[in-house]
Amino acid sequence: MALIPPLQPMLAEARAELPPERALPGGLAYEQKPDGYRAVLFAGPGHAHLQSRNGADLSGAFPEISVAGRALREPLVLDGELVVATEGRLDFGQLQQRARRRGAGARQAARTTPAHLIVFDVLDTSDGPLLDEPYQVRRALLEELFAHVLAAPFVLCPATTDRARAEDWLDPAWGAAGIEGVVVKGLSQKYQPARRGWIKVRARASAEAVVASVTGRVAAPSTLLLGRYDEAGRLRFIARTAPLSAAARREVGGLLYPGGAEHPWQHRRFSAGWGTRETLDHRPVVPDVVVEFVGDSAVDEGRYRHPVRYLRVRDDIGPEQLPPLGAVRWVV
């Protein structure tokens, strides 16, 4: 094959809504965006290399994918999303645990929580690389491969040219199953490594939570740290908002008061962002203000992985009126 690892995959630019039909060349195709790890598989008879988006070798962590890659009858380079499913939905937490294991631990995990590669593109075959071919040609070839060559643990990513169906995939009910949203691609687009030439739209839904701490000044907070009470009455962190507008700072800040020494988050440390060890400088507040926010479907055990967007104060309900979080495992 002409393509060898590491290969920088083509990326998507985040948008708030589906773009107009002429946003990308040749009309639009829509694909489901599963909640997983981006991965490129270089495979063929007797060899397999599974590469992360950043170029790391994931082959040892997911031996079932490597085994299936080595069993292929012809060489292929496949672009897709690594996922693990448990209890009827994609489980990002289990996927993270799988990614840290090697050796006997990885082989055992492959038996108990097997991974799949949801494939949305084919980049190279024994006939040569396909980067300069339009998306619709690559997609047709990929469907042909799934008809005659590819089987579990490989899964064909659902795709459509029907905008109404793509809008249905943005329903939060799909998010509950682990579908983050939709990736939009041009039917005539070439595959351009490292370029953000596609468009990604996340499924979003609104929810309510208690303001339990803030960054910045209490009277004019920069961001809000939101919590919900679990069934045992413990205040659990669920989300941090994106930076507030000036109007939102005034609206929320005028209702907040500093929390006392008994506040359950008085000595808590919170990460400044997903995957970083930097901690936030935050100020606990009296947890009696409920706000509504909108977030995407990337939620791990009740906690939103990405920043959420503040919508408004819900002064019509109090913290005691919010349903408790279920009995789940939390990382404190």
Rank of each mutant, 00 (worst) to 15 (best):
L256Y: 04
G295Q: 05
L130Q: 03
A61W: 10
R73P: 09
I238Y: 15
R138V: 08
R303P: 00
R89E: 09
A205L: 14
Y257N: 05
Y37N: 13
C157K: 10
A173W: 09
I65Q: 13
Y310M: 11
D316P: 01
L141S: 10
E81V: 15
E21C: 14
V182G: 07
P221K: 04
R268T: 12
R312M: 04
I179L: 07
H148E: 03
V201C: 00
G128M: 14
F146S: 02
R312F: 03
Q94F: 09
S66E: 06
D171G: 15
E167M: 11
R73A: 15
R195Q: 09
L311A: 09
D127C: 00
V201L: 02
A2M: 05
A14I: 13
W265Q: 01
E17T: 13
L156P: 14
A39R: 09
L255N: 07
Q108E: 08
V137G: 06
G186K: 02
I199Y: 07
L255E: 11
T215P: 07
A29T: 02
R329P: 01
V84P: 13
A247K: 11
T241V: 13
F154N: 01
D127M: 10
A242S: 12
S213P: 01
R163W: 10
E301V: 05
I199G: 05
L117S: 07
H263K: 08
P319K: 08
R240T: 07
R240Q: 04
E180L: 03
D288K: 10
H116N: 09
K185W: 02
P243F: 14
R204L: 09
L141T: 12
Q108I: 05
A104N: 11
T160A: 01
S213W: 04
A56F: 14
R100V: 14
M10W: 07
E320G: 15
Y310D: 07
R70P: 10
I118N: 00
A147T: 07
G260M: 03
P153Q: 04
A272G: 14
F120A: 05
A140Q: 14
A261N: 03
P323L: 14
R165K: 05
L244R: 11
L131H: 05
A247C: 01
A212P: 03
H47F: 15
W330G: 02
W274P: 03
H49R: 14
V149G: 02
R38A: 11
G197W: 04
A173I: 12
V155I: 13
E17I: 08
A219N: 03
V122C: 12
D124T: 04
L255D: 05
W330C: 01
V211T: 01
A14V: 15
R228M: 05
G302R: 02
V291E: 00
H47Y: 13
I179T: 11
P134Y: 12
A109V: 03
R309M: 13
V285S: 03
A68N: 15
G318T: 10
L150P: 09
H267P: 06
H267C: 01
G181F: 11
R15W: 09
A212W: 00
G93M: 01
D79Q: 15
